[in-house]
Amino acid sequence: MLSNQEVAEELVKKFGDDVYDFEEPYGLLTLTTTREQILPMLNYLFHSEKFRINFLTDLTGIHYPDEPGREFAVVYHLHSLTQNFRVRIKVFLAEADLHIPTATELYNCANWMERETYDFFGIIFDGHPNLTRILNIEEMDYFPMRRQYPLEDATREDKIDALFGR
């Protein structure tokens, strides 16, 4: 069994200052890296004999509009089926430059997950074979999961949010 400590130490040894913000929410090793290092890191974890973290469980995005310079995050959940070890890797991106390299070379399943993330957040995965919208219509001209698009019609005045606990 791998421990969080072991993997974290190995990653620090390998990537130095490019991995930071280590956390363990509910026991799941969470760390942050940079856009430049994400592919080398995924590759390293994939091919490392010791870790074999070679299953991409999930890939998604998050929008933090109140954190200038790091408004968007791309979150990778990886899993090692042989060691039963999960790790969560985050990459923060600035709204002005929403580019991140694609992981489709390494994982076939990243294809649609990245398209979904692009569809919802407008994060551009460089090198993706077919980066088009997947769940929404092609003609849509905004990215609906961004926080500035409220769910209900904001012009309605007959519902006061405070009264509804929202």
Partner: peptide, 19 residues
């Protein structure tokens, strides 16, 4: 908090990533 929880659904790993 930040939670990822997975269950074995009818078709496979059904995960919920909740922030």
């Amino acid at each position: 908090g930040e939670v990822y929880h997975a269950v074995e659904g009818g078709n496979g790993e059904l995960g919920f990533y909740l922030i």
